[in-house]
């Protein structure tokens, strides 16, 4: 068996997963894992699939594209060799933090924050944003979930982020993830 990684992008509509999964099944493939998300009305999914020896990524991609032609999807099949990135292989001991940037969207916000995080050796594990516009700052929030290695100097990171906040006229806070878990999760 070989492994492939399939990405599916397009406008959300009924039948996307049915179509994709049916083609994979007909061609004797097996879905090992998948993750799908919705960004407003845009659908995105990643599927890790075992395919039989006689199958190639190119022919599978073609079959998927043909089957979903009427849906306007963008489907790509990549060959996949299980390689774990260095960060995950030699992952240092980290503490989970949440960075929240409150205030209107600014061009460069993600780039600036992400660059500072990268510079301080921090990994972003998730990024979510709510931008509803309007004057209520709580309706314009970007949330970074990050893993901070022990070696990172939190004070320096906070200072760097405070500098960005000042320049972009935003409120940026850095809080340990546990406070959100404690307050939000009453029943575990």
């Amino acid at each position: 068996m070989n492994k492939v990684l399939i990405s599916v992008l397009g406008n959300d509509q009924p039948g996307i997963l049915a179509t994709v999964a049916t083609v994979i099944n007909q061609r004797q493939g097996n879905i090992e894992n998948l993750s799908q998300t919705l960004l407003h009305t845009v659908f995105g999914a990643l599927l890790l699939v075992d395919i039989p020896k006689q199958e190639t990524p190119e022919s599978l991609q073609q079959a998927l594209q043909e089957a979903s032609a009427s849906m306007g999807l963008n489907i790509t099949v990549h060959p996949w060799h299980e390689q774990i990135a260095d960060w995950h292989q030699n992952k240092p001991e980290t503490q989970p933090y949440i960075i929240s940037a409150i205030g209107p969207d600014r061009q460069g916000l993600v780039a600036e924050v992400a660059s500072q995080l990268f510079k301080h050796g921090v990994n972003i594990s998730n990024l979510q944003a709510i931008f509803k516009g309007g004057k209520n700052p709580m309706e314009n929030v970007m949330v970074f979930e990050i893993d901070v290695p022990r070696a990172t100097n939190m004070d320096e990171l906070r200072e760097a982020l405070a500098e960005i906040a000042k320049r972009l006229d935003l409120e940026i806070s850095v809080q340990h993830r546990k406070i959100f878990e404690s307050v939000s999760t009453i029943l575990t």
Partner: peptide, 17 residues
């Protein structure tokens, strides 16, 4: 992954309430 709504509601409690 935390729910962004939960995060915002906690932020709101600290920031505004």
């Amino acid at each position: 992954m935390l729910n962004v709504k939960d995060i915002i509601s906690t932020l709101q409690m600290v920031r505004e309430e």
